[in-house]
């Protein structure tokens, strides 16, 4: 019997390799019961059922299940609203200008995958989940973003002047650039805030990677970037392929530190690597950030992000 079970598990792993090894990347905790995985975009909230007066939670009580599910989905909506789209706005700020879209996001969250508490599960909680890809991404990514425009964004003049330009310009990149399968940007130590549409600038002030290179459809399907806490290419292979270009970010940019600046020579190399093909189509870019220090710190960030009068 145990052999049969082991065989079943092995076969399951072979048949369903993707979900089993799905790249979670940087898992940002929100309190003790929720998280956003910035690798595959999965958002999960687990909520315990309230205990009855006798101190026991009844896992089959419909009212308790409904209450826990409503609370979990409310928490998930708050998490989504607090996500930064780019350096200028959060999802909340974007939706505040479009009532119809806000209703659709709420409806989508209310229709998110849901697991009731199992009678065999001692913890006895409900689990709701959603993903920042596909339909939800279609709703929260503004259509005003100039996807695949090919027009490089430019840093503001004041910032441009304060940047030290590098004289070390690399040779024109030829066929060597084609060999790269993805891009890993090491931004550890820069206190980067994850965002749906960050921009990577060169020290020369011109955009090297961002929505201007990616089609809206590919951004919706894959996410413009993934975030991870490990720079190990083996760990990141699923997203960036077997031969990624490794770049060190110099600084984070913007009031919420969503964008990155890399050296001019590396920016030129990145632009050469970002040619039409798999890298662009599958958004094979990972930004490596610091691992979360403590849950308390994350709570502070959440509170700051859902301020109603935030700058748009």
């Amino acid at each position: 019997m145990p052999l049969r079970i082991a065989f079943f598990i092995l076969v399951s792993l072979l048949i369903f390799p993707a979900p089993a090894r799905s790249f979670q990347g940087f898992v940002q905790p929100f309190g003790e019961n929720a998280s956003i995985a910035w690798g595959n975009g999965e958002i999960v909230v687990v909520r315990m059922l309230e205990k009855a007066e006798d101190g026991e939670s009844d896992k089959t009580a419909p009212l308790a299940v409904r209450k826990a599910a409503m609370q979990a989905r409310k928490q998930m909506l708050d998490m989504i609203l607090s996500i930064r789209i780019d350096s200028k706005r959060t999802v909340s700020a974007f939706l505040s200008g479009d009532d119809e879209l806000a209703v659709r996001v709420r409806g989508s969250i209310q229709n998110s995958p849901f697991k009731r508490p199992s009678v065999f599960d001692e913890s006895g909680g409900v689990r709701v989940s959603e993903t920042l890809r596909g339909k939800l991404a279609e709703l929260v990514l503004p259509t005003t973003i100039q996807f695949q425009s090919g027009i490089q964004p430019r840093l503001s003049t004041s910032m441009e002047q304060s940047l030290a330009f590098s004289d070390a310009v690399p040779e024109v990149v030829g066929s060597g650039a084609d060999a790269y399968t993805g891009l890993i940007i090491d931004a550890r130590g820069l206190k980067v805030t994850p965002a749906l549409a960050p921009v990577v600038y060169g020290q020369d002030g011109l955009g090297a990677y961002g929505a201007f290179l990616i089609s809206r459809k590919n951004a919706i399907d894959n996410g413009i970037v993934a975030y991870a806490i490990s720079s190990d290419p083996v760990v990141l292979r699923e997203r960036v392929g077997s031969r990624p270009l490794m770049v060190k970010a110099l600084t984070a940019y913007g009031s919420w530190r969503t964008d990155l600046i890399i050296s001019s020579p590396m920016a030129r190399l990145v632009r050469a690597v970002m040619r039409p093909g798999d890298i662009i189509d599958k958004c094979r870019v990972v930004i490596v950030v610091d691992a979360p220090i403590s849950l308390e710190n994350t709570d502070v960030i959440i509170e700051g992000e859902i301020q109603p009068n935030e700058e748009q």
Binding site: R73, V103, R104, N111
Partner: peptide
């Protein structure tokens, strides 16, 4: 099995 009318309206769209 829904918990909110918003979810019904969203499924209507779907």
């Amino acid at each position: 099995g829904w918990f909110s009318p918003d979810a019904v309206l969203e499924f209507d769209r779907i």
